[in-house]
């Protein structure tokens, strides 16, 4: 058994888990953070994307023990209380989700994408950056639209702050 302690959504958590426990299993089972989903066995669908130390990773492809000592953000930690993150808001306003299953991973991937590219995102880049996130409902049309809208809003807010 591994003793695991990490910061999740700003809260220090610790627990015991088998060494083979995946980060996604630790989040879902030990911490009851069921917003992070598992949609495949081959590290391709991206439903499990969370941020570890500020970077998007697939929590199905990382042991919980590997993440021990790290800071993890999941979909549950993205909003600031009742105030949605601009990416969450954009997905809502642009109908960027249907069944909602891929959505947490999509949103976490989008936040990471926007952070890396700043306001400098176009449709082709967004589509290429979504390589690791599969959606079966939306045809991606409104996901792309949502991410571009959020990028514009975040970029605009940054500009205004500068």
């Amino acid at each position: 058994m591994a003793s695991i302690s990490m910061t999740v959504n700003g809260r220090t958590v610790s627990g015991e888990a088998e060494d083979r426990t995946l980060l996604v299993e630790f989040l879902r089972s030990n911490l009851a953070l069921t917003g992070t989903h598992v949609g495949c066995d081959t590290s391709q669908c991206g439903a499990c994307v969370v941020h570890v130390d500020g970077k998007a990773v697939k929590s199905c492809t990382m042991l919980a023990a590997q993440a021990s000592g790290s800071s993890v953000t999941t979909i549950e930690g993205l909003a600031n209380g009742d105030v949605l993150h601009p990416v969450q808001k954009a997905f809502h306003e642009n109908h960027g989700l249907q069944c909602g299953f891929c959505t947490p991973g999509m949103i976490m991937a989008a936040v990471d994408m926007i952070e890396r590219h700043g306001g400098d995102l176009d449709e082709a880049t967004v589509r290429s950056e979504l390589e690791g996130n599969i959606c079966r409902c939306t045809g991606y049309h409104n996901i792309v639209k949502s991410i571009l809208a959020a990028a514009a809003e975040i970029g605009g807010a940054r500009q205004a702050a500068e």
Binding site: A56, V57, D112, R116, E131
Partner: peptide, 9 residues
């Protein structure tokens, strides 16, 4: 290589 999440690891 892979996708952005894979490239982070």
């Amino acid at each position: 290589i892979g996708d952005p999440h894979v490239r982070h690891m």
